[in-house]
Simulated assay, not measured.
Amino acid sequence: MEKVILIKLGEIWLKGKNRDEFIGRLIKNIKASTGLSNKDIIIGQGRIYLYNLKPSNYNLKPIFGIHSFVEAYEVEPNLKEAVKITHEIAGKEVENGAKTFKIEARRADKKFEKSSMELNQELGEAVLNKFGEMLTVDVKNPDFSIFVEVQKSSIYLYSSKDEVAGPKGLPVGISGTGLLLLSGGIDSPVAGWMSQKRGMKIDAVHFYSPPYTGEKAKEKVVDLCRKLAVFNGGEIQLYLVNLARIQVESKKAPERLWTLLHRRFMVQIAKEIAQKKNYKALINGESLGQVASQTIENIAAVDYAINFPILRPLVGFDKLETIEIAKRIDTYEISILPFEDCCTVLSSANPKTKAKLQEIAQWEEKLKLQDAVQEAINNLEVKKIT
Rank of each mutant, 00 (worst) to 15 (best):
residue 1 M to L: 12
residue 10 G to D: 04
residue 12 I to S: 00
residue 15 K to E: 04
residue 20 D to M: 11
residue 32 A to K: 14
residue 34 T to C: 10
residue 39 K to Y: 04
residue 41 I to M: 08
residue 52 N to E: 15
residue 56 S to G: 08
residue 57 N to Y: 08
residue 62 P to Q: 03
residue 63 I to N: 01
residue 63 I to D: 01
residue 70 V to N: 05
residue 79 L to W: 01
residue 80 K to D: 13
residue 81 E to I: 03
residue 81 E to D: 13
residue 84 K to H: 09
residue 88 E to Q: 15
residue 91 G to E: 12
residue 101 F to P: 00
residue 102 K to I: 06
residue 107 R to S: 11
residue 108 A to E: 09
residue 109 D to P: 05
residue 114 K to F: 15
residue 126 A to Q: 01
residue 133 E to A: 12
residue 145 S to D: 01
residue 149 E to T: 08
residue 150 V to S: 02
residue 150 V to C: 10
residue 151 Q to M: 14
residue 154 S to P: 02
residue 161 K to D: 05
residue 165 A to H: 11
residue 168 K to S: 14
residue 171 P to H: 09
residue 176 G to F: 11
residue 181 L to Q: 02
residue 181 L to K: 00
residue 187 D to E: 13
residue 187 D to A: 12
residue 188 S to I: 11
residue 189 P to A: 14
residue 190 V to M: 08
residue 213 T to V: 05
residue 216 K to T: 09
residue 222 V to A: 12
residue 223 D to W: 01
residue 230 V to A: 11
residue 232 N to G: 07
residue 243 L to S: 11
residue 243 L to D: 03
residue 248 V to L: 15
residue 252 K to H: 10
residue 256 R to H: 13
residue 258 W to F: 14
residue 267 V to S: 11
residue 269 I to M: 15
residue 277 K to R: 13
residue 283 I to L: 03
residue 288 L to Q: 05
residue 289 G to P: 12
residue 290 Q to C: 07
residue 306 I to G: 10
residue 306 I to Q: 05
residue 307 N to Q: 12
residue 310 I to E: 06
residue 310 I to Q: 07
residue 316 G to H: 09
residue 319 K to S: 11
residue 324 E to L: 11
residue 324 E to V: 05
residue 330 D to I: 03
residue 331 T to F: 03
residue 331 T to L: 12
residue 337 L to W: 01
residue 343 C to R: 01
residue 346 L to K: 00
residue 348 S to Q: 00
residue 349 A to D: 07
residue 352 K to Q: 11
residue 353 T to Q: 12
residue 356 K to R: 11
residue 356 K to L: 06
residue 357 L to S: 00
residue 359 E to F: 04
residue 360 I to M: 12
residue 363 W to H: 14
residue 364 E to Q: 15
residue 364 E to F: 09
residue 370 Q to G: 10
residue 373 V to N: 04
residue 382 V to T: 14
residue 386 T to M: 13
